[in-house]
């Protein structure tokens, strides 16, 4: 079976530490809120215990990763899915960047233009032909325009050119 790849344990612990820090933050904020209002739990009660619980879970994950590392095999039973091929960080970052840029642009160039840009850029990043990318970039926004703007009357953000 798939033994943990070298980086796995490190990432696992990093994530657990992040969760632990977040749990501390939740508890800290919760303590500013009223814990009990008379005899009834106040707004701070639930967040406090959620934070505590998250902290305990994070510690348990850390401890588990320790055990896992020492015993040399994953804790628990079986992995649920076939392992993913190694990440292609550049492609993923490019996709993320394109999408974020498009969402920033929604209110400047309009929803439909922003979507056309996403479709064009992602289509190319994923190795599609120019022809396919351009066709999708025109066709789908047009379809969305008919459906959302004309028919369902969703007030979509518009660009300076009126759509």
């Amino acid at each position: 079976m798939s033994l943990p790849r070298p980086g796995r344990v490190l990432w696992d612990r990093l994530a657990a530490l992040l969760l632990l820090a977040f749990a501390v933050y939740i508890v800290a904020v919760a303590r500013q809120l009223t814990y009990m209002q008379g005899r009834v739990p106040g707004p701070g009660f639930a967040p406090f215990w959620i934070g505590v619980g998250l902290g305990v879970a994070a510690l348990a994950i850390l401890a588990g990763s320790w055990r896992e590392a020492r015993s040399g095999r994953p804790a628990g039973v079986q992995p649920e899915e076939e392992p993913l091929p190694p990440a292609r960080p550049l492609t993923l970052v490019a996709i993320g960047a394109v999408t974020i840029a498009a969402v920033v642009l929604i209110e400047r160039v309009g929803m439909l233009t922003a979507l056309a840009l996403v479709l064009l850029a992602l289509g190319r990043i994923l190795g599609g032909s120019w022809r396919a990318a351009v066709l999708t970039a025109i066709g789908l926004p047009l379809f969305f325009y008919l459906l959302f703007a004309l028919w369902l009357k969703v007030p979509l953000p518009r660009g300076p050119w009126g759509f």
Partner: peptide, 25 residues
């Protein structure tokens, strides 16, 4: 549909769909 068409289309559908929920970016 080819992946290079399908995946971007899913992303676009998700964006416009979620926007229309509250008309909010």
């Amino acid at each position: 549909l080819p992946r290079a068409v399908l995946l971007p289309s899913i992303a676009a559908l998700a964006i416009i769909g979620v926007y229309s929920l509250e008309n909010s970016v």
